[in-house]
Design a protein around this nucleic acid. Structure first.
Length: 141
DNA sequence: GCCAACGTTGGC
DNA sequence: GCCAACGTTGGC
């Protein structure tokens, strides 16, 4: 974590596309975002940025860290040119997954979008939040 | 440009 | 399965 990276968090329901699915595939394009806020975050992502992988509905925990390998382009699953995807690849498992309950219980993370904007599926994460979650997950890069 | 109706997300 | 939160749509 030496360069000027930005940090993110992306949500997926594990029965639709899980962290294990991403590891199996090696990389994927992040399709299906149909919300302007989340779309704007996708557009702001730069190559090499890091993103937590969060399992919503089932698990409700941050399970891994992925890296942006290709910046945004038109979502190939729709003709509507408002929507975009980025490509990511898995970098590392969280040694200990960090649950939503742990995030909510931690004062240092009270401002995380995961708590304050629960429905946003692609969220910015600050550097301090990123480091804090890594620490809580006994994980280093 | 307001706002009511509607649809979706996602925690519980 | 329920429902609160909130984003989107469309009538006016």
């Amino acid at each position: 974590m030496t360069r000027n990276l930005s940090f993110w968090l992306m949500k997926s329901e594990p029965y639709k596309y899980s962290w294990d699915d991403l590891k199996r595939d090696g990389s994927t394009y992040w399709d299906g975002v149909r919300n302007y806020g989340a779309r704007n975050n996708l557009k702001a992502m730069k190559k090499e940025d890091l993103s937590f992988y969060y399992h919503s509905n089932e698990g409700k925990e941050i399970v891994g860290i992925s890296k942006v390998i290709k910046e945004f382009y038109q979502d190939p699953t729709t003709d509507d040119d408002r929507w975009v995807v980025v490509e990511i690849e898995p970098i590392k498992d969280m040694k200990t997954p960090v649950s939503l309950a742990m995030v909510k219980a931690d004062a240092a993370l009270s401002g995380m979008a995961l708590v304050t904007q629960a429905r946003l599926s692609v969220q910015p994460v600050t550097r301090s939040e990123f480091k804090r979650v890594l620490s809580m997950g006994n994980t280093s890069l």
